[in-house]
């Protein structure tokens, strides 16, 4: 896909999605609105993971901490300080970015396995801490006020997602983008090119934390109730990852496509094939890792799509 057509497709999708709920003729049902809010929240998270995991090459297995933190900051700011939703969301976003910087300074020095597991551990620590500090409601959880219309969530998540994609496009075509990709490709070579890899990685992690926390904030208000096991669930980290990888990690649209398809399949199976749905995520991850490690975008950018693509992937990585 070239850049111009990518932008046009993106534009059309955005306009259709933007007007869909309010257009009298094509207005969509509450059920679909709800579904799309879920898709967009996950798309923001998958894209957030993509920045650090897909573009920078640091596969975080604990990005759920930003989601949980965003949810809790939004909730506490709305409940305890009676601050409006949107301002709370912005606070949450900055809290996410700040937290990314704080944990990023030590953990981004780690490579490979060690980074992945350290982030997984930090997710668990945050869950344990939230369960034990009084002002977060401990294990009981927090109830948020109930919003008047689900359109609020629809548009907030749409704007957040669109803003994220545009922001990412701009970043990637600039100096920071080159730095980020250089870090992923070869950190030593990047350092010798004058790239301050430490700062580049921290910036990427902060962007990831910023937007993932927004997703957490929207989720918190939307679901009206949060507790630590729900918003710090490590499975959420894995869902972000599989959505990004399934769509195409290291591409801008991949994670969005991945979030949409996976949420759609998951919803479809859970209503029609309950038993199959039970094995859906685990199975999808296993199959994707084996057959489609570079994601759908890579598959569809092949000149010829056929079984050979999958067979090649299997043969390439075994011993």
């Amino acid at each position: 896909m070239n850049k111009a057509s990518e932008f046009i497709i993106l534009g059309i999708i955005t306009v259709v999605v933007a007007i869909a709920p309010v257009m009298p003729v094509i207005h969509i049902s509450a059920f679909i609105t709800r579904f799309l809010i879920g898709v967009m929240i996950y798309a923001i998270m998958a894209e957030g993971w993509n920045v650090i995991g897909g573009y920078t090459g640091y596969p975080s297995f604990g990005n759920v901490v930003f989601f949980g933190l965003g949810a809790y900051v939004t909730a506490l700011s709305m409940i305890d300080f009676h601050i409006g939703f949107l301002i709370s969301l912005i606070l949450a976003a900055f809290a996410g970015a700040l937290f990314a910087v704080i944990i990023g300074i030590p953990v981004l020095r780690l490579k490979g396995h060690y980074f992945a597991i350290a982030t997984l551990g930090i997710g668990e620590i945050m869950m344990a801490i939230t369960l034990n500090v009084p002002f977060t409601g401990e294990g009981v959880g927090l109830s948020l006020p109930i919003a008047s219309s689900s359109l609020l969530f629809y548009y907030t998540s749409l704007i957040a997602l669109a803003a994220f994609i545009i922001f990412l496009k701009l970043i990637l075509s600039g100096r920071l983008g080159y730095g980020i990709i250089a870090v992923r490709e070869d950190e030593d070579a990047a350092r010798m090119m004058g790239i301050n890899t430490v700062i580049v990685k921290i910036k990427a992690f902060a962007i990831s934390g910023f937007f993932t926390a927004i997703a957490g904030g929207i989720y918190a208000y939307w679901s009206t109730f949060i507790d630590p096991p729900t918003v710090y669930d490590p499975i959420i980290s894995v869902k972000m990852i599989i959505m990004a990888v399934f769509g195409g990690a290291g591409t801008i649209l991949g994670p969005v496509v991945g979030a949409f398809i996976i949420m759609f399949l998951s919803d479809f199976l859970s209503t029609h094939f309950t038993l199959l749905h039970t094995f859906f995520f685990g199975g999808l991850i296993v199959l994707t890792a084996i057959f489609l490690p570079k994601g759908l975008i890579d598959l569809f950018s092949q000149k010829k799509i056929g079984w050979n693509y999958f067979i090649k992937n299997i043969k390439k990585y075994r011993v």
Binding site: G112, A116, V238, V245, G282, T288, I290, Y317, R318
Partner: peptide, 23 residues
């Protein structure tokens, strides 16, 4: 089938197996 892929893919795969076996 993924033993020589990026280490992150092997992590992801075993996490998938974990979810699958648990379910």
């Amino acid at each position: 089938f993924v033993i020589r892929a990026k280490m992150f893919i092997t992590l992801l795969l075993t996490f998938g197996l974990d979810i699958l076996i648990t379910n």
